[in-house]
Design a protein around this nucleic acid. Structure first.
Lengths: 192, 192
DNA sequence: GTCTATACTTTGATAGAC
DNA sequence: GTCTATCAAAGTATAGAC
C-alpha cells in the first residue's frame, strides 16, 4: 500500500514534468513509465482508465501544486504590488534555471485538449477557475474593490500565461519582465 | 504547376487549421492529406523534409496571415484605444463563432516545440518577433514613447495569448473582455 | 497484485507501379 | 509526376504468468 502509493506518485510526478515540456499527445505512456522506473502494467493497475485518467489526475494535481507555489510568492511580503512584481520575476528566474522548460504545468495540455477531449478540457477549466477565485480573494483582501477584483485577476493570470508563451518561444524573459511591471501598475491603480 | 501549387496551398491551409485545434503531435500527416483531398505521396513531393518541413512552413504562413488579420482590426478606426478594445472583442466573437477553436494559430504548437524541436521553436519565435515589432511600430506611430512601446506591445500580446488559453479552456470570453478593457486603459495611459 | 510479453492500431516515411 | 502499397517503429491497451 505504501509502496503502491509511492509508485503512483512517481508516475504522476513524471507525467506532470513531461506533459509540461512536450504536451499530452507528444508524451507516450511508455516514456512516462520508463522514466518513473515503473513496470508497464502498473499504469493500468493505478489508472484503470489508461492515459486519459492519468492525464486528468496529473492536471488536477499539478494545478493544485502550482497554485500553492504561486500563492506563496504572492503572500511573501506585506506589499501586494511588490509581491506581484516578484512573482513574475521569480517565474522568469525559474525559466532561466530550467532551460525555459518549467512554465505553467498545464498550459500546453489545456490548449491541446480544448477542442479534442471534453473531460480533460473540464479538468483544465476547473484548475484555472480555482486559480482565478484564489487570486480574486487575495485582491479583495488587499483593498481592491470586489467588482474590479475578478477582471483584474483574469488580466494578471492571462498576462502570466501569455508571457510564458513568448518566453519559451524566444528564450527570453522580456515578456515576463514587461508584464510584471504592467501588472504591478494595474494592481496599484486598483487599490486606490 | 498551377494545380501543384493549389494542392500545396490546400495542404498548408488544412495543416494550419488542424495544428491550431489539435497541436502538432496530435495531428497526423495522414489526417491532413485526407482532409485536403490530396494523395499521400504528394506530401513528400511538396515537402521533401516531411512533417517538420510542413510544420515550419505552416507556422510562418499562418503567422503572417494572422498578423494581417489583427493589424486590420488595429487600423480599423482613427482611435487606437478603441481599436485595441475592438480587437479583443473581435477575437472573442471569432472564438464563439468557431466553437472556441480559432484562437492563435501557432500558440499550441509553440508550446509543444519550445523544448523538443529547435528549428520549429525558431520558426515560432520569428513569428512572435514580427508581431511584436509590428505592434511596437504602430504604438510609436500613435504617440507612445519609443521606450515604452515595445514593453507595452509585449503586455498586449501576452494578455491576448493568455486570454486565449482561459477562453478556450473555460469556453467563455470573460478573460478576453477583461484583458481588452485593461489593455485599452494601458494604451490610453501610455499616450499621455 | 506485480510485472512481462504480446496484441492491435496508428504513426511517419519510402518504394515502385502506372 | 501521380498515386498506391507497404515498411519499420511507436502508440495504447490487454492477457496471463508468477
Amino acid at each position: 500500500m505504501s509502496a503502491v502509493n509511492k509508485t503512483k506518485e512517481r508516475i504522476l510526478d513524471v507525467s506532470a514534468e513531461l506533459f509540461r515540456q512536450q504536451g499530452l499527445a507528444g508524451t507516450g505512456v511508455k516514456q512516462i513509465l520508463n522514466r518513473a522506473n515503473a513496470p508497464f502494467g502498473s499504469l493500468y493497475h493505478h489508472f484503470p482508465g489508461g492515459k486519459d485518467e492519468l492525464a486528468a489526475e496529473t492536471i488536477r494535481r499539478a494545478g493544485a501544486q502550482y497554485a500553492e507555489l504561486v500563492a506563496g510568492k504572492l503572500l511573501a511580503g506585506p506589499d501586494l504590488v511588490a509581491n506581484v512584481r516578484a512573482a513574475f520575476r521569480s517565474a522568469g528566474q525559474t525559466l532561466v534555471d530550467t532551460d525555459y522548460a518549467d512554465a505553467c504545468p498545464i498550459e500546453t495540455v489545456a490548449l491541446e485538449v480544448a477542442n479534442t477531449n471534453e473531460p480533460l478540457r473540464l479538468a483544465t477549466a476547473e484548475v484555472f477557475e480555482s486559480w482565478l477565485s484564489g487570486l480574486t480573494a487575495l485582491l479583495v483582501a488587499n483593498d481592491v474593490a470586489k467588482k474590479k477584483a475578478r477582471p483584474l485577476a483574469h488580466v494578471i493570470l492571462s498576462a502570466l500565461e501569455g508571457a510564458f508563451v513568448f518566453a519559451r518561444a524566444s528564450r527570453s524573459t522580456e515578456a515576463l519582465d514587461a508584464c510584471g511591471a504592467a501588472m504591478a501598475t494595474l494592481v496599484a491603480a486598483a487599490k486606490s
